[in-house]
Amino acid sequence: MSPFVHIVPTGVANVASVVAALRRLGATVDVAADAATVRRAEHVVLPGVGAFGAAAAAIDANGLRQALCERVEAGRPTLAICLGLQLLAAASDESPGVAGLGVVPATARRFPAGVRVPQLGWNTVVPAPGSPLPAGVAYFANSYRLEAVPAGWHGLVSDHGGPFVAAFARDGVLACQFHPELSGAYGAGLLRRWLAGAEVV
C-alpha cells in the first residue's frame, strides 16, 4: 500500500515541490486542515516557505498547535521542512514576540553579516557526533537557522558563516532546514526512509 501523507496548510507555503517529490516516491498526498486529521494521519508534513509569524498564525487559525506538538513529542512520522523546522523552535528573530511550537527550546537567528543572505544553494551536511543521519549535500533557501542541535536529538550540521543546524531527528520525526524535496538523490533517500518506516533514526 502506498504511504499516505497529509500536508499542514501554513497558508504561505509553496507545497508543489514537496507534493511532486512525495508522489515520485509513490505517496498519496492530501491536505490536513483540521486537528483530528493531524492526530490521526499516518505521515504529516509541516512545510516550508514564508514568514515565521504568518505561518504560526495559520497553524493557530486552524487549531493545529496542540495536535502538532503531541505528534512530534510522541515521535510519530512528522517531517518539518525549512521554516517548518524553525516553527518547532520557541521563537524566531524573524517575527519577534511570536511563539513557535516550542517543541525544542531554541530561537532561530539570522545568518551573520559577511555571508550571502538568503543562503541559496547546495551545502555540505555532516552528522553531529553520535548521529546516524547520513552525510551529503543538500539544498538550502533560508535567512534564519538554529545554532545548535537540540539536546536529545540526532543532528546534521552545515556551515555558512559558522556552524548551523541542517537537520534534527528522533523516532519518526525529521526536521530539515534544507529542502529534501529539492535535494536530488540525497533528499529523495531521506524522504524514502521517512516514508518507509516509523523511525528515521
Binding site: 509553496n14 508543489a16 515541490s17 524535496e181 535535494s183
Partner: peptide
C-alpha cells in the same frame, strides 16, 4: 525535477507569482 526551479517571464503581480509557485516554481 528533484532540484530547485526558478521561473520568470511576464510576472506583473503577486497573483502572477502565486500561480507560478502553485504550479511548482521554487
Amino acid at each position: 525535477l528533484p532540484i530547485p526551479l526558478t521561473v520568470g517571464g511576464g510576472v506583473r503581480t503577486v497573483d502572477d507569482a502565486a500561480r507560478l509557485l502553485d504550479a511548482g516554481a521554487d
